[in-house]
């Protein structure tokens, strides 16, 4: 009987506190800025932390307050920077932005022990494997967040630059003329 009464009383307590929390959430709700919500929707949402903020939400807040540049998200690259600049209505000069080097994680089959730690932390399920089986990375799904590299006990997971093939090869940008001569040219005609 003691057991039953304990269960009942704890359940009632739980229900009551839950109700209290529910009511509090409705009446004491903190309005979030719609701009921050929109920014967060643009960001990758992998909470990788490469921008220096603890996650995408805090990064979006910093962007909305103007404490972070539009080019702050390395996985998003310049495409994301342009979207953020358009949303915030700020001018963006991308000529100084360096495109991040594309990386992809790869498992070295010689040293992988099949410990399963890497695929447990992978935010995009890009690592496949089973206990005591060699794991493999699905390159198309890897976002180069490096979380797996940190947890790998044998250092068999390493980041490698994405291999250039005919499929992803692109023409390089022509080298620009020295700024001095450009400037004099446009001044003369303005």
């Amino acid at each position: 009987m003691y057991v039953l009464s304990a269960i009942v009383s704890l359940t009632l307590l739980g229900l009551f506190l839950g109700l209290l929390l529910g009511v509090a959430a409705k009446y004491l709700k903190v309005e979030s800025s719609p701009v921050v919500d929109e920014l967060e929707a643009l960001l990758p949402g992998s909470q990788c932390g490469q921008c220096g903020f603890p996650g995408c939400r805090p990064a979006a807040e910093a962007l909305a307050e103007g404490n972070a540049p539009a080019t702050m998200c390395p996985p998003g690259g310049s495409a994301l920077a342009e979207q953020i600049a358009a949303l915030l209505g700020i001018d963006l000069d991308l000529s100084e932005v360096k495109e991040p080097e594309l990386l992809v994680a790869r498992v070295s089959e010689d040293t992988c022990t099949g410990c399963t730690r890497c695929f447990k932390v992978c935010p995009t399920d890009a690592i496949v494997g089973a206990p005591k089986q060699i794991h493999a990375v699905v390159a198309d799904a890897c976002i180069a967040c490096k979380k797996c590299v940190e947890v790998c006990p044998t250092e068999c997971l390493q980041m490698h630059p994405v291999e250039v093939t005919l499929r992803n090869w692109r023409w390089a940008k022509p080298q620009p003329v020295p700024a001095q001569s450009l400037g004099s040219g446009s001044n003369a005609l303005c």
């Binding site: 949402g45 992998s46 690259g77 495409a79 935010p123 399920d125 890009a126 976002i143 023409w171 940008k173």
Partner: peptide
């Protein structure tokens, strides 16, 4: 040469955009 570079870059960005959308789906699914 500028246009060839830019056309490739536009395609690369479209692919990056597509990958970002796919990544979001993967993260949500996870």
């Amino acid at each position: 040469q500028y246009f060839k570079y830019a056309s490739g870059e536009v395609i690369a960005r479209q692919q990056a955009q597509h990958k970002a959308e796919q990544t979001k789906k993967l993260i949500d699914a996870r």
